[in-house]
Simulated scan of single mutants.
Amino acid sequence: MTAERVFTVARKEFADQVTGWRFLVILALFLGIALAGTYSGVGSYERDLDRYAQELATMDDRFDEPGRMVMPSKPPVEGVYSSMFLVLISYGGLLAIAVGFDLVSGEKESRSLKSLLSHPVYRDEIINGKALGGVALLVLVVGGVLLISTALLLVFSIVPSPDDLWMILTYAGVTLLFLVTFFSIALALSTLCRESGSALLLAVVVFILLSSVIPYTTTHIGTALMMEEPDRAAYGGDTSSEGYQAEITAYYGQWDLVKSATNLLSPRMAIDNLIQRIHNSPSSGATLEDTLGKIWSSIAALTIYPIVFFAIAYTRFLRMDIR
């Protein structure tokens, strides 16, 4: 395998996708969803600004009590982006599936794959190039969404600060990981199925399982196996007692374990948890260790799923009987 041939296949795949009608439809849907999320985030941001202005106004009446004054903090612009990306990922998995469900099965049906293999290119170079081209397309889509959303904010005279920039880029990065996860699932099913229709149907079924069925089932089974929440009355209402604190700590420890298992098994729950934790981390005052303890399962899910399904696609394609 040579990198040059991999990039050649990737460029061809990228060009074919970008010039096709499906890319225009997917990009339009992504932009429509992103603009709706941005508009919703702008409305929430403006309400927070009004609340911030009211809190500042009340400070004028408290100058005689300087020891009790706490300056309110201005709402960050990155909250608009967190709202936008949360809306985007609601349907982004299905759009990512649309990018990859026929990358291999479609070429098998049109018999163009057999013609491609007649050229001086190896199978591993083809599958790696196709995967790289699809990921590049998703990078283009996420980057385009980010630029257009930023332009819309500038129209509303909302300018992100340098402190907001790294969080905005983090939102874009984890959203891209989420899209790559479902793209890898679609690519793997495209190599496993003989027909594109079957690959699309199975990919949608997997999307529903990972987004709804598995998190619902995992949460309910986990809560059923958990200990009961400690009763304050059993300790005479004394929540500071050593016995109550030990039980409540164990209870919330089990709940965190259930949430971690749910995030690990569901990319959708993982990305929701990750974006919310990133958004709340500045105001919560949590340490880096505490934050990592809350998001490790989300990071693992968004890393393991793409690796596993890309490995399935790679292995299956190398052993595929192409006639």
Rank of each mutant, 00 (worst) to 15 (best):
M1Q: 02
A3I: 13
E4C: 03
K12G: 11
K12Q: 09
E13F: 14
E13P: 02
V18W: 12
L24A: 15
L24G: 15
G32V: 07
A36T: 07
S40G: 09
V42E: 05
E55F: 14
A57M: 11
T58E: 13
D60C: 01
E65D: 13
E65P: 00
R68M: 13
V70C: 07
V77W: 08
S90A: 14
G92F: 12
G93R: 02
I97M: 08
V99S: 09
H119P: 00
I126N: 03
I127L: 08
A131E: 01
L132F: 14
A136T: 05
T150H: 13
V155C: 08
V159N: 06
P162H: 03
D164V: 05
W166N: 06
G173Q: 00
F183D: 01
S184K: 01
S184T: 10
I185H: 04
A186K: 06
A188H: 13
C193F: 14
R194I: 09
E195I: 00
S196W: 05
L200G: 03
L202D: 01
V206H: 03
L210N: 05
S211W: 14
S212V: 14
Y216C: 01
Y216W: 15
T219R: 09
M227T: 13
D231P: 00
R232A: 15
A233H: 07
S240I: 02
G243I: 04
Q245H: 06
E247S: 08
I248G: 04
Y251M: 04
G253P: 03
Q254W: 04
L257G: 08
K259F: 06
S260N: 11
N263H: 11
M269S: 14
M269V: 11
D272C: 07
N273E: 11
Q276T: 09
S284A: 12
S284V: 05
A286I: 12
I295W: 12
I299L: 15
A301E: 02
L302N: 06
I304G: 09
A311I: 08
I312S: 06
R323Y: 12
